[in-house]
């Protein structure tokens, strides 16, 4: 089951609820890519996204006993992820007050100080594929894309941005988004509508929606 639709009673979730560690590890294997993508699209730092994803699953494991509806495991897990990301961004904002001369607190962690927030592994930096033009171009597009996403989210309120990303980046249904954010479905729709309207008027719309590169 690829990161997604969960049957009403997923046997893995039931077994994990009974304390089966292997079943929980299987759930981790199943959802880790989705959770990592969710985190990366919000914080745009590979290392931080890795650490945060690990933390999300540890929290989920510790709180597994509090999951009331086994059929809503994914929404529950995504809610933990969204809250962790929110906490991370809040901490980052707070820390930025004390480091006014460092624009990105990940600079030290990123080899080559990649300004996009995307940090390359050692293998990527020194590997044989590094100089390949196609890859370089792809990385440039990647960097540009996430820069535009960052600019776009600055235009939106926190809730609009979250709803939009959950809908289109994480491909969640409206009902699931409502469950993840603990809001009513009509509230979610209102925020989504506002977000779409703002993005439609955003100057970087061409790059974001049509994939055009200036």
């Amino acid at each position: 089951m690829p990161n997604g639709q969960l049957s009403a009673y997923d046997p893995l979730v039931i077994r994990a609820l009974e304390g089966d560690r292997h079943a929980f590890q299987s759930l981790v294997d199943q959802y880790q890519d989705g959770v990592f993508r969710l985190v990366f699209s919000r914080i745009q730092s590979r290392m931080d996204a890795q650490d945060l994803s690990q933390e999300i699953f540890l929290t989920a494991m510790k709180k597994m006993g509090t999951l009331k509806s086994p059929d809503k495991f994914k929404s529950w897990l995504y809610r933990i992820a969204v809250n962790k990301v929110r906490d991370h961004l809040r901490k980052k904002k707070f820390m930025a007050l004390f480091t006014p001369f460092i624009s990105d607190d990940n600079k030290e962690r990123q080899p080559g100080n990649q300004p996009s927030g995307y940090s390359y592994t050692q293998e990527e930096m020194t590997g044989p594929h590094r100089k390949e033009t196609a890859q370089q171009e792809d990385r440039l597009h990647q960097k540009e894309f996430w820069e535009h996403v960052k600019q776009m989210t600055l235009e939106l309120s926190a809730m609009e941005s979250e709803v939009f990303m959950l809908r289109f980046f994480d491909q969640q249904e409206l009902a699931d988004i409502a469950a993840i954010l603990n809001k009513g479905e009509s509230t979610v729709k209102t925020h989504l509508y506002r977000a779409l309207k703002k993005i439609r008027n955003h100057p970087g719309k061409g790059v974001l929606l049509e994939g055009r590169h200036p």
């Binding site: 560690r21 709180k63 597994m64 006993g65």
Partner: peptide, 13 residues
């Protein structure tokens, strides 16, 4: 790297 959970048992419901 893939996420690995610690060896401790999952708290039961």
């Amino acid at each position: 790297r893939p996420i690995r959970i610690p060896q401790e048992p999952v708290p039961r419901r």
